[in-house]
Design a protein around this nucleic acid. Structure first.
Lengths: 492, 492
DNA sequence: GACTAATAAGTCGTAACTAT
DNA sequence: ATAGTTACGACTTATTAGTC
């Protein structure tokens, strides 16, 4: 009441009565900007700011000092509070995930223990015996879904939707149920810093891997990233969407053709003829699931493609559940039959190993999501080490170049100009223009890049020590710095 | 500098220059006290406070208003911050627990799957076969510890310590390892509101139950509570500590004699002759573990006691790990052989059920800890429903009274004055003075309690529907209100 | 000197109540 | 109903005490 008595009157220049003047929005804006640049300016710098910034010129140095002090204090309090909240959200989501995983594991243990008891009982009582009805269903449950044969259906939307729904069910039973006997992947400890919880299959047809984890991205964004397989799966050469059918429930059924590079010169590449079903569950989770289609489905077919071995994808996919506070809980199942019969016997373990699938595909997906999520949360600072997106792009390009040279597909411009007849050493040449993009480098000797042909020599050898396949890729043209980075490159 | 220019003039009496005077510690103390009584006093009340409180008399009403306003604001901020921190601590601890549990489950699954593969392989290949060396050790691991026979050792401190250390190892392998095939307890879902993660044994000798959970109590307090078994285990009649030996590592080895009431008139009570070892692990965890001693250990023995059947406790105990922020992560294993051969066949399922053990003992321990932890954290408000300690004491007294009458031990003053020869109906009398403590009640009719003898009639019947044993306890004396509450009481 | 932590007191928007 | 009063929460500015 009496406070204003002498307040409103005098306002000469800047501070008249020295008491409590709210700074104008423009002043606050300027101060905020300066704070963002440097939250702790020195006395000299502060005086400089007053001189340089017109809008601040009527504020006393002492007040500027106080403003920065208070600003720092506010920031500290806000930061602490929001940090705590963020940690909280994250840990709570992790908890949820672990709780569900726990539940699944406990179910699996119960089932296995029961099954086991059945075996023990029947091993004791000699050869064959009266079946224990209560457990019998569990004993073979590990195979139920994997060997499931769906009846022949036509390629009508209804027929495809029927396959899609079935795929969804089978995928979910692998992702959250005990349809596959998942066992912990060797060397993967669940922990706050780990990529997630990773398991591999045991005793089912084909190879399967499963991972679950948290990422700080919205489900829609996650789906977007994961569906773009060539961007994160090193061995993925292409995914062509041949057809798109929207479904009544707001989902999408797509027919895809996908090619995977071979990881070695000793085996042909793989391709897939797939149905992909994207939909939303009742609880708001997004699901993308996939499976192979028969080569000959009435009305739709995908004839064999030269140089590729047709492989099978068993029901697989991504289950993405939003969690409060912006992130997603993600479950990934990859399950395929890579037709190991078609590769030399020594390489078969690579095509029959769930661990390899987990490392190359399943974990790679989670890793990609983690990296993108981190980029989003980080502020954009210059410098190579702080630009993961650029690093990722380079890494992907290197991989792609390597895989291209390794596979040497003619449609990418490669032609063989000689080999030693044993497939051990091959010389390729490529003169397509896109191979030279970005390669206009000069070397230290000052010669500019002038050649317009890439020459590549490759050799494969198998190390028996720890199933490894070493691939040497030697570019004979100096300008080919990109591929030169791969000398020598070890795969597997 | 110029701040006081026009303010200091008009301030008669108390506040001279009206600007920012820190209140004296005495004033703050008085204000805090008043705030504690009422954090939001009305304008009238505030003026009253200034008049009534000498020390505040020179503070303006407006200042008092502002002080309370600021005080409320501070409280709010502090509350929010500490609330977040507390939630954080709790969730993080839960996370840790779940992660460990996950790890254990994954190990168990791997083991079971391996074992299973072994069985499958050997079931297929007829009868007996070449053993798979890599898995053989796992196939029988479930029994390893349970049937372990320790060599006869003397009762010297060294001998007892040797048994104690072995007990510790076996307990830990049950609590954190896969020494027992734990399966999820039916009907127990792990969740934030559940009592904890509870599992029961499968296919090992005796009955075993396991629980883990978090409580907001210090490990030392937890140990204190759990060791005092009669305070939380309804069926525990007494625990006598016969001997205490401190160990070199700061632990304690105790020799105990424990009695458990029978839960029915149709079976005798159990007693135990135990070694209990309390110690601290390297990581700061407290451990209390127990096991039965042989009835005849050189130099030490515990001859059979009349009316009791000697039961065996297999390595069991409590593992209590402190977690940052004050709480504890607790793992409990109870493993006993209750000698079911000694009870009528119809009752045996009660003595062979791990679920019953889990509910009566393992979960009861966690429940007790939870309740005490909640009492500590709650402020003391009057009213019965807000006094859990009193309720707990009453509940315990009721249980004890019931168990006493049910078991009718002569040393507690009970004597049989008649039964129908079939053990179906028994009449007991008890005139010991402690039965009347607290019973000096008068009823509505105005008659004071004058009788000094308790008369009790009891009958047991077994309901086959859901193995239940109903016990009716009828006090014939009006004054026995305590036992009257038990008409009819259902056990099991 | 400047820094941090705590705190007194100011502004602003809003809601409830009051007086005419 | 509408302007005026009052109190409050949220936020901001300024002051003090204590540390380095």
């Amino acid at each position: 009441m009496m406070a204003m008595s002498c307040k409103d009157g005098g306002k000469l220049g800047n501070m008249d009565n020295g008491k409590y003047v709210r700074y104008t929005p423009e002043q606050v804006e300027a101060l905020e900007r300066l704070y963002h640049e440097c939250p702790k300016p020195s006395s000299i710098r502060r005086k400089q700011l007053i001189r340089e910034t017109l809008i601040l010129s009527n504020i006393e140095p002492k007040q500027i000092k106080v403003w920065f002090q208070n600003r720092r204090c506010r920031e500290k309090q806000r930061k602490e509070s929001s940090r705590l909240q963020a940690v909280n959200r994250k840990v709570t989501a992790m908890n949820k995930l672990l709780m569900e995983e726990n539940d699944r594991l406990q179910k699996q243990v119960s089932q296995l223990v029961c099954e086991n008891g059945y075996f023990r009982q029947h091993t004791q009582s000699a050869t064959l015996a009266t079946k224990d009805a209560s457990c019998e269903s569990m004993v073979t449950s590990g195979q139920h879904h994997a060997t499931h044969q769906h009846p022949p259906r036509d390629a009508s939307p209804a027929g495809l939707l029927s396959i899609a729904e079935e795929t969804l069910t089978e995928f979910l039973s692998k992702a959250t149920g005990t349809a596959v006997e998942w066992v912990q992947m060797p060397g993967m400890k669940p922990g706050p810093d780990s990529i997630g919880i990773v398991a591999i299959s045991h005793g089912c047809t084909g190879v399967a891997a499963r991972a679950c984890g948290l990422v700080g991205l919205d489900p829609t964004r996650v789906v977007e990233i994961l569906k773009d397989r060539p961007s994160w799966l090193r061995d993925c050469r292409a995914v062509d969407v041949l057809n798109v059918l929207p479904t009544a429930n707001g989902g999408t059924v797509e027919l895809l053709y996908m090619q995977l590079y071979a990881p070695t010169t000793l085996a042909p590449a793989r391709d897939f003829w797939l149905l992909r079903y994207t939909s939303v569950l009742e609880d708001g989770s997004l699901v993308v699931c996939e499976r192979s289609l028969k080569n000959t489905q009435n009305g739709l077919s995908m004839p064999p493609v030269q140089h590729f071995v047709r492989a099978e994808m068993l029901p697989s996919g991504y289950l993405i559940r939003p969690c409060e506070g912006g992130g997603s809980i993600i479950r990934i199942v990859d399950h395929m039959d890579l037709e190991p019969w078609s590769v030399p016997e020594v390489l078969r373990p690579l095509y029959e190993s769930s661990t390899v699938l987990a490392q190359k595909t399943t974990m790679a997906a989670l890793r990609q999501l983690r990296q993108i999520s981190q980029e989003v949360s980080q502020t954009n600072i210059t410098g190579w080490s702080r630009r993961p997106a650029a690093l990722r792009a380079l890494s992907q390009r290197l991989s792609r170049g390597f895989n291209e040279a390794l596979n040497g597909f003619t449609d990418e411009g490669w032609s063989t100009i000689g080999n030693d007849g044993m497939d051990d050493v091959t010389i390729l040449v490529n003169s397509s223009p896109d191979k030279l993009i970005g390669l206009n480098l000069s070397f230290g000797n000052g010669f500019p890049a002038i050649s317009n042909t890439v020459l590549c020599a490759k050799a494969s050898m198998l190390l028996q020590v720890r199933i490894s396949n070493i691939f040497f890729d030697t570019a004979t043209d100096e300008t080919l710095s990109l591929n030169c980075y791969y000398i020598p490159s070890v795969r597997w």
